[in-house]
Design a protein around this nucleic acid. Sequence first.
DNA 1: CACGGATCTTGTCGACGTCAAGATATCTTG
DNA 2: CAAGATATCTTGACGTCGACAAGATCCGTG
Lengths: 206, 206
Amino acid sequence: MTLAQPEARPYHHGDLSRALVEAARRILETDGPAALSLRAVAREAGVSPAAPYHHFKDKGQLLDAVAHEGWVALDAALMKARQESDDDRRRMTSLGVAYVTFARDNPALYRVMYDCSRDKDALPDQMKEEGAYCQVRNTIAHAAGDGVSEIDLELATIAAWCAGHGLAEMSGFKQFESLKALLGGEEAFLKAVFDHLGMFAKFDRG
Amino acid sequence: MTLAQPEARPYHHGDLSRALVEAARRILETDGPAALSLRAVAREAGVSPAAPYHHFKDKGQLLDAVAHEGWVALDAALMKARQESDDDRRRMTSLGVAYVTFARDNPALYRVMYDCSRDKDALPDQMKEEGAYCQVRNTIAHAAGDGVSEIDLELATIAAWCAGHGLAEMSGFKQFESLKALLGGEEAFLKAVFDHLGMFAKFDRG
DNA sequence: CACGGATCTTGTCGACGTCAAGATATCTTG
DNA sequence: CAAGATATCTTGACGTCGACAAGATCCGTG
């Protein structure tokens, strides 16, 4: 009865690169960023502690790969939020809520994404089409119309991104729980905060 | 000639708690957060690797102490920015610039401050008078006058804090360097971004 | 002076990131 | 198909880390 042994492990080991990244994400989700050691990833993937070094130069490069998957997922989440757009009048706020929601739903992954960015003093390739940053800029450009300068567009995008990132990191703090309850939940809280950032309201319209 | 031997080290070791925190800050400033191990701190302070455990339960508690000093320093920086206030018409923006400037000038310390907060899912005692959060809220309350509700005041404070924190973490990214140069420097860049967050302009006035 | 408690050192443990050397499987070439 | 080259994985090791236990040292107090 050897038929259909699950995932008949290929000879050498299949493509370990992918397996390692998936193992890393599994560990991130279940045990958090503190438990994400190279050795733990190797264990989770069922290989020896030194095996990853044939696919990634060091731990940082593995994290870079994980972070890259995170950015792709975030791009998709924002794209989805834009396309659904059942809330045309509040496009920018919807985008902001989607951004923060992604960060809240994948806190460990989001942390890895930004830690990798900090190590390189730069966001990853966000500027290409469908990159998250570019999506925000395009949304603002569309809402602002033609009369907006390149500089203003860039500044507005940065401002929006900063607000989103700040809220993503801070909305989990206990201090705000009573206020969230008072406003009727997490999403209402997020929308209320964005409302207080005038630029979001400015770019939201019907 | 034994007079004035520098810092005649007291018997057992003086008050190590303070010495350890200072050593930690020294390491943070010179070698960054990655180099901040308990053993390195002990080395820097001139004691054995296990000595810190008589003053701090674990590494986290030492970092908590370092972070606490950071928050106190941030409180002072904001207070100074408010009192100088040579720019009455743009009080809120000045406060935001002071906040981000502190984070840019002490990047490693700022990182430790927020990492500790995340571990506890809460900001430290910011709510007491002169705490940074409270200073922001008071500034907004003063600018907004009497007609503002408690909830709106809290939301506006959170929104401002998120914008400041986000900009503090992102303004170092390479992507924005050309824009900074184009606007005439770091501070001009920060002010421009804050300008695009309507609420700052709303609360700035003469 | 003696003793108890605080402080610091030494020694040790398991886990980590990383590398070198060896083993094994796949690919390439004749 | 055989045989060397190459890619992949394992084993073993090194230095560092956080943390703890046991022992040494010093202080204050009775």
